[in-house]
Nucleic acid binder design. Sequence first.
RNA 1: GCCCGGAUGGUGGAAUUGGUAGACACGUUGGACUUAAAAUCCAAUGGACAGUAAUGUCCGUGCGGGUUCAAGUCCCGCUCCGGGUACCA
Length: 922
Amino acid sequence: MEYNFSEIEKKWRTYWRDNKTYNVKEDSDKEKYYVLDMFPYPSGSGLHVGHPLGYIASDIYARYKRLKGYNVLHPMGYDSFGLPTEQYAILTGIHPEVATKDNTERYRKQLDQLGFSYDWSREVQTSDPNYYKWTQWIFKQLFNSFYCGSENKAMPISHLISFFEKQGNINSQAVCDENTTSFTASDWNSFNETEKENVLQKYRLAFLSDTWVNWCEGLGTVLANDEIKDGLSERGGYPVEQKLMKQWSLRITAYADRLISGLETLDWTDSIKEIQKNWIGKSNGVSVHFNLENSDKTIEVFTTRPDTIFGVNFIVLAPEHDLIDEITSEDQKQKVVDYVNKTKLKSERERQADKSISGVFTGSYAIHPFTKEKVQIWTGEYVLATYGSGAVMAVPCGDQRDWDFATHFGLDIINIFENIDVSEKANQEKDVIIVNSDFLNGLKSKKAIDVAIHKIEELGIGRAKTNYRLRDAIFSRQRYWGEPFPVYYKYDTPFILDDDKHVTLPQVNKYLPTSKGDPPLARARKEDWNVFEGDRMETNVMPGWAGSSWYFLRYMDPKNDGEFCAKEKSDYWGQVDLYIGGAEHAVGHLLYSRFWTKFLFDRGLIGFDEPFKKMINQGMILGRSSFVYRIKDTNTYVSFDKKKGYKTTRLHVDINFVDNDILDLDAFKNWRAEYADADFILNDEGKYICGHEIEKMSKSKYNVQTPEKLVGKFGADTLRLYEMFLGPIEQFKPWDTKGINGVHNFLRKFWRLTHDSDNNFVVSEESPTKQSYKTLHKTIKKVEEEIERYSFNTVVSSFMICVNELTEQKCNSREIISNFTILLSPYAPHITEEIWQKLGNDTSVTFAEFPSFIESYLVEDEVNYPVSFNGKMRFKMSLPVEMTKDQIEDEVMKHEKTAHYLDGKSPKKIIVVPKRIINIVI
RNA sequence: GCCCGGAUGGUGGAAUUGGUAGACACGUUGGACUUAAAAUCCAAUGGACAGUAAUGUCCGUGCGGGUUCAAGUCCCGCUCCGGGUACCA
């Protein structure tokens, strides 16, 4: 074999490992660059060809930046805590640690095969106690911090305590729970330890709170929304109910505003920024208090449209609203109780899925703050307890949901919009004039909103307020395979372990909840814990996103035993300059890690407050499924091009039996017993042609392509080039191996350019021709420009054009080949190392210098002008570059073909764009 | 419903600021080499029409309009596909 890729690739992978080629150190003489892949979860099923797409792109970029003289940090590791491994442990009894080790080893093997330039000495795993003790440490810092509203940053809780000691909480600007009661300094000083802690919990950034969760008694655990189907658990089919449970939460809502404004500094796609903005859901409005007819209490509603306050026809409370019990009249009591109970049984998801209108009148009335008229109070599911104050002022003429509700129950609809018909639907337009609204009459909405807020505040019946859709993040999981909390309890009050103490996951006899419904860790006996303090240890574990919220920092200082990451290291490496990964983490990982980064910044632990400066979201690679067509009620399969006229059933066939849509009949027959004596109707060439379709890659569709197979057949360099050649990195695209021969041939062509027919390496020492220089420098320019704008696919074309031209020029000059080898090395590291070595270099091509582009090689004496008539290109003519517009015009008019296209007419206008185009308007 | 993308040959895609549409590959067809096959090399390849031919004419970037000397690219109005998201007051 001339180009023996398997031997070459093996040789260089060994070399890189033995020589630690890709290990990096901080180096103040060099500018840093940080290229990171999104943290993979090492799943048991390994990689398919879609997974490495982003890794290849980031590797190319990292290698390119090295050639450009940067000190590049390009690490890899595993987000190794997680559910699938735990499920596997429950099923098999195999400790998750063992399964994780197997999976990461397999993953590593697969990654290594592709020739990535990771610094593996920096590998981290979230499930490694030496890693998660620092996750615990950050949790401790969150616990010991509060968010100061006046400084607009997180600060030590001790500051807050001394504030309370001096002033109580009445003038405090600290962010806290909605239901926090006021106290004075002397109140505070009289509290006992537990009382003080209960207050502090309302301020801490990591805090215990009662949270509504989907509790499944049958399984003894809390379920995620997507684990519930029709009100029953997906596994086992047990009933699920909403239950209040004490859970750890993180006060991400304190950062809501900064999480929105910080997006402006990021080079991310608009769509991800938009998703985050919507998720945080900032809305400016006003909270207004409505007095009740028969009570001293008031109902607080939140509205973004105070301009429509004279259009209020009724008020709707969420079924969970505190006041419902109290205000419901005797005659409506039974109906309301039934309704509230019914809704309680539904999961949040079910309630959201159910679009039907429901609600019950409570029988009591509120007083409109301006008109003083009676307003009916209803309860209805469409009002969410968890947003705003859990109550809305219903304006059916101006809000479609309120309109639907009013129409459904036959309630009045007052119209407050001039010349607008609200009999068919509500008016949501803001560019209309408001009428029937006392002091707002004649104003347009925008102005009326300001006027109304002003008036409401002046009368003391409410105040301007900003609401967020974002909720505090629940941080407890009733699982085993996650980070344990550094928390113990004394008299049911939580305490944090000292900084030098951390909890390692204790051994348990089973990975299931206890019979009492406590999490698996509750199975651990006192002596199973490495640390045991107080009455009991916390038995929840942290969620999957805990470890992944800060892993990019640990890569900078992975072995540090005294700190999570030394400040001088994080100051050197700084933000991730390029982050490549899927868009599916838009509101999970990408939001949480921004939150943690801002927190660590606030506390002075790192010097930047956004983790990922530039992000590229690679598109999914889809599979190309193949099909056979079985004639109904037979065991006969008809070729795709012959199936017309037959009634057939389409069946997925394993793509490993299909080459260029032609089915390997023997392989198919051997696949399954039922196909063993299959008959075939072949086409005229005696072949069975399969049908095909583009679908998501999945085992059940038999369309999964593994990198191993392709690396075996074509080599890693070919696979790397091909994955890039498929198309723009961020686009969704089908995987089709048809084209892989093309890039493989390119590498072979490159090999042949530098080897004679006996496979001896040959380069010429003669100086290259002008033409070859031009080819090279054209390529240098293109490769550099395209990589800089992350257009990885077009670079491959440039390589091909370069080798095609050099082959044509019969150019194998050492100078040209050397430079081209460097250009190609980020894409095809193995073959280029081999040729680099054969060129006589004794260090890796990794340490070469990216060739500099010299403009003068591209300068031409002549320009080949396209000549257009009325915008249509008709012919070309070469003219000297230095020619003036007038001279060009003369030359064109003299051209023999011009007369033909003028067809006797004289041109109205001649447009000459030097070095570009000539257009003659007739 | 709302928000964000996208639509270019038989296929994947290129065209970066409005300036030669279809680069580069795949596939297909024909040819060379070979006992044969594979591999390799050469040639053709958007469509239609005319011509023995060189060549010429027309059409052509989802659809309909517009701006411009010139539109895949800009503007207006649609269609279809993909993604995200939703009783968020």
